[in-house]
Design a protein around this nucleic acid. Structure first.
Length: 490
RNA sequence: CGGGGCGUAGCGCAGGCUGGUAGCGCAUCGGUUUUGGGAACCGAGGGUCGGAGGUUCGAAUCCUCUCGCCCCGACCA
């Protein structure tokens, strides 16, 4: 009767959606999905977020799988202190300089001013190296292959849930080796683990390769990284693996006696991935209806929605419970949504928003026909399966979805990877298209800076193998030493 | 650190110009009917209007200061 009611009715379709369309405003979509799917919540402190159970469960699945892969390659977990004395951090000059702008400091304990202020670790090279100096004496002590799962703090100016937060969770591997070659081998082994993990488990294809000198980790000799392409055309640095050379060994005096009875500085690596991976999963796979989780890292792979009509609690519910038990016993992560406060339609929308890959509907008609309805989150395709064949059917569908997500992401990347043979072509891509640009590079820092200034884009990776078609540096025209991929990034 | 936007119920917002009982939708709680794509109706609860100061008989509203958050750019996983 009043204006308010009319307005509400005319806009009811918008209220149903509740989240911004991915194509309308990618940033808002991203934040909407995170909030509505209850992955994370903002705290009252800037840039500091809470990872809620559903979001944390994704991280746990990521963590558990990676942990397994690290252990399979001989790594062991340990835990080092959260605090790093200032003097430790200062030992490696480049390292300090690189991290100084974003370190949080503790200057007081209780009512006492500290004699030496303590950094809250932005990364743990400094504290870990100080211990390695004590633990390593002989070539027989090597290699040391340690990983830690921890939180770190970086006082970033601009933050975004999962992608860049003041405090975040990650793993950081810190290894020590007797030779450069071994360290390099380790660096690449981890890069390979990251690449495999992203593609096989997260269904996110990544480009891996070397960073340029200006983009490498502060204190490293070489930094390798994995870079997936996001739907808005920007690249995301999703993981890094550094060959530290002897830089930290020299700064922290990590020496060992080799087989020739000579004292030698050790060779080190460090590598990490963070909760940023959760952000990548959200961005790469989600759609206008919300999240889409790859089955391998979905906290719930299937949700059972009993169709509630009439005396459903006596008829449908027991069947649904039996199905739930059966699927659970067979190792699926499954949930039975038996709430009677919501209608089936509401539940459908809810679980789609939360990205559950498969919905299983069971109603009176299904029970009568000894069948179930399996619904694919990707396209809402429904298929009827025989009740006693559900395990095999679900397994197959989950595999299909996992595979399809990777294909879809790969296809998007192919369509958004361009080539530029000269400056005009390079700028044309930045101005008129989006995505990655493959181009030649002369290896000079000036050319990197020029592109950064002109297009806010950087070299994301230097390709492993030079592509001979790119004979000239696309910026200055000099002879190309490498083939690189440029992109705007997060 | 620059540019923009915004702080009013758990969430999303209106009200502000022109000072005078603090509102709407969603959510929540109770009830009835429903339930195969976000159900309907009836009823109820919930607020120091970001904070401080000022003007005024009276401030969510006007003035001054301040704090915080979000988005877009320069730096980083």
């Amino acid at each position: 009767m009043e204006k308010g009611t009319e307005k509400n009715q005319s806009e009811s379709s918008d209220f149903v959606k509740q989240i911004t369309k991915k194509s309308d405003d990618f940033s808002r979509w991203y934040v909407d999905v995170i909030k509505k799917a209850e992955l994370a919540d903002y705290s009252s402190m800037k840039g500091i977020m809470v990872i809620r159970p559903y979001g944390y469960e994704i991280w746990e699945l990521i963590r558990d799988q990676l942990d397994k892969m690290f252990k399979e390659t001989g790594h062991r977990n340990a835990y080092f202190p959260l605090f790093i004395p200032e003097s430790f951090l200062k030992k490696e000059a480049e390292h300090v300089e690189g991290f100084a702008p974003e370190v949080a400091w503790v200057t007081q304990g209780g009512h006492e001013e500290l004699e030496e202020k303590l950094a809250i670790r932005p990364t743990s090279e400094a504290i870990i190296c100080s211990f390695y100096a004590k633990w390593i004496n002989s070539w027989r002590d090597l290699p040391v292959l340690i990983n830690q799962w921890a939180n770190v703090v970086r006082w970033e100016k601009v933050t975004r849930p999962f992608l860049r937060t003041t405090e975040f969770l990650w793993q950081e591997g810190h290894t020590v080796h007797a030779t450069y070659e071994e360290a390099e081998e380790e660096t690449l082994r981890i890069l390979d683990i990251y690449t495999t993990f992203c593609e096989k488990y997260l269904a996110i294809p990544v480009i891996s390769g070397l960073k340029s000198q200006s983009e490498k980790f502060a204190g490293a000799l070489k930094t390798y990284c994995i870079e997936p392409l996001m739907p808005d055309g920007r690249a995301l640095q999703a993981g890094t693996s550094h060959n530290l050379g002897q830089n930290f060994a020299k700064a922290f005096n990590i020496r060992f006696e080799n087989q020739n009875q000579e004292l030698e500085y050790a060779w080190q690596t460090s590598w990490g991935v963070s909760t940023r991976l959760v952000g990548a999963v959200i961005m790469v796979h989600g759609d206008d209806s919300g999240l889409i989780l790859p089955p391998k890292v979905a906290p719930l792979q299937a949700v059972i929605v009993p169709i509630s009509r009439g005396n459903w609690k006596e008829t449908v519910l027991p069947e649904a419970q039996a199905l739930f038990q059966e699927l659970k016993k067979n190792g699926f992560r499954v949930y039975l949504d038996d709430r009677d406060t919501y209608t089936p339609g509401w539940k459908f929308a809810e679980w789609e928003m939360k990205g559950v890959p498969v919905r299983i509907e069971i109603g009176p008609k299904d029970i009568e026909n000894k069948q179930l309805v399996l619904v694919n989150r990707l396209n809402r395709d429904k298929c009827f399966v025989k009740r006693d064949e559900v395990t095999a059917a679900l397994e197959k569908l989950l595999e299909e979805i996992q595979q399809r997500l990777l294909e879809r992401a790969l296809d998007f990347r192919e369509k958004n990877t361009h080539e530029a043979f000269n400056y005009a072509e390079l700028m044309d891509v930045f101005d008129n298209r989006k995505g990655l640009v493959r181009a030649g590079w002369c290896e000079s820092n000036q050319c990197e800076i020029k592109i950064k200034d002109a297009a806010a884009a950087t070299i994301r990776v230097i390709q492993d193998k030079k592509d001979e078609r790119f004979k000239r540096c696309s910026v200055c025209g000099a002879e190309a030493k490498h083939t690189v991929l440029f992109a705007k990034s997060y």
